[in-house]
Design a protein around this nucleic acid. Structure first.
Length: 264
DNA sequence: TGTGATGTTGAATG
DNA sequence: GCATTCAACATCAC
C-alpha cells in the first residue's frame, strides 16, 4: 500500500503508539533480506535501551529518530506494515522483527514480500544525499517542478515515478493525476505546455493532500476519482469508456483512451 | 497453475 | 548524462 499518503498514515500511527517509549529489546525473526547495513544482532544491540523521539517522512521514506540522535530508516517496499499490539495473539503472520517496549507492548514490522528496506542511519542528510532522493512531493515548490519538467524527454509516468526528481508518488497516484488532468501517462513530460504542467503540479498536490487527510483510507476516496474504478474491466468514471490497461514505464497503467490526450 | 502486485535497483542498451 | 527495458528481490492471492 505504501505511497506518500500511505506512509504518512503509518507515520501517524507510529507517532501515536511508539514515540517516547523505551525500547527494551528488538525481537528478531527474519531480518536477513530487509536489514541492509548491519546484521540483526548488531541492529538489536543499537536499538536496545533507546527511545524514539520524533519521526520524519520524505516521500515513501520513513525515519524514526532516537534519543542518541541517530535514525532508523524504514522503507515499506510493496507490503511492509506496522502492527502494534500488547498480546502475542496480535502478532502478524509475516512479522520480521518487533520493537519491544519496556511496558510490554510491541511494534511489529510485518512484511510478507520482504521488499522492505531498513537502515540504521547516523547522518540523515548524508543518507538522503547518497540516495539522491528528491524533495517530498508535498513540499516541492511549483517553480522547482517547472524546472524539473521543462524540456524533459521520457514519459510523464516515468518522471513522476522517479524518486530522485520528487519523492512520494507511486503507481496508483500517478495514474490518478494523469487521469484527472486528461493526460495520457505515456505523454512526453517536456511536451506539455507550461499551463498543463502547472495544473498537473497543483492537482498532484491536491490529490496527495486529500489522501493524507483521509489517512489513505481508500473507501473514503472521492467516487469521482479514478481510484476506486481502477480495476480490470472497469469504465472511465467521466465518460464511461472502457478503461485501457497497458504497461507504461514498466508499470501496469490504467487510463481512459477516450479522454486522456497523448502529448508528444 | 500461472500471473501479477502500491517499490527499488542494477545491468544492458541506445 | 539521459532514458528505456528487463530482471531480480520473495511471497501471496486470485
Amino acid at each position: 500500500m505504501p505511497e506518500l499518503p500511505e506512509v504518512n498514515a503509518k507515520k501517524n500511527h507510529f507517532d501515536q503508539v511508539a514515540l517516547h517509549k523505551k525500547i527494551e529489546k528488538v525481537d528478531l525473526i527474519d531480518t536477513s533480506y530487509i536489514l541492509k547495513n548491519m546484521d540483526g544482532p548488531a541492529f538489536a544491540e543499537k536499538l536496545s535501551g533507546r527511545t524514539f523521539t520524533e519521526t520524519y517522512r520524505r516521500g515513501k521514506y520513513f525515519f524514526a529518530k532516537m534519543d542518541n540522535g541517530h535514525y532508523v530508516l524504514l522503507h515499506f517496499g510493496m507490503s511492509g506494515h506496522f502492527y502494534y499490539y500488547e498480546d502475542m495473539s496480535g502478532q502478524p503472520k509475516h512479522e520480521r522483527f518487533a520493537f519491544v517496549f519496556e511496558e510490554g507492548s510491541r511494534m511489529g514490522f510485518n512484511c510478507p514480500r520482504k521488499l522492505a528496506r531498513i537502515h540504521y542511519v547516523e547522518d540523515l542528510e548524508d543518507f538522503i544525499a547518497r540516495k539522491n532522493l528528491g524533495e517530498d512531493a508535498l513540499k516541492l515548490q511549483e517553480e522547482d517542478f517547472m524546472e524539473l519538467t521543462a524540456g524533459r524527454k521520457g514519459t510523464l509516468k516515468g518522471f513522476l515515478l522517479n524518486q530522485k526528481y520528487l519523492a512520494g508518488m507511486g503507481n496508483l497516484y500517478v495514474d490518478e493525476v494523469c487521469w484527472q488532468q486528461h493526460i495520457h501517462p505515456a505523454s512526453v513530460t517536456g511536451a506539455l505546455t507550461e499551463k498543463q504542467r502547472r495544473a498537473l503540479f497543483r492537482n498532484m498536490q491536491d490529490i496527495l493532500k486529500k489522501a493524507v487527510s483521509l489517512d489513505a483510507v481508500y473507501a473514503d476516496y472521492p467516487d469521482e476519482w479514478l481510484w476506486n474504478h481502477r480495476t480490470k474491466d472497469s469504465q472511465c468514471p467521466r465518460d464511461g469508456t472502457d478503461l485501457q490497461r497497458d504497461k507504461v514505464a514498466g508499470r501496469s497503467t490504467y487510463y481512459c483512451p477516450n479522454c486522456q490526450e497523448l502529448i508528444e
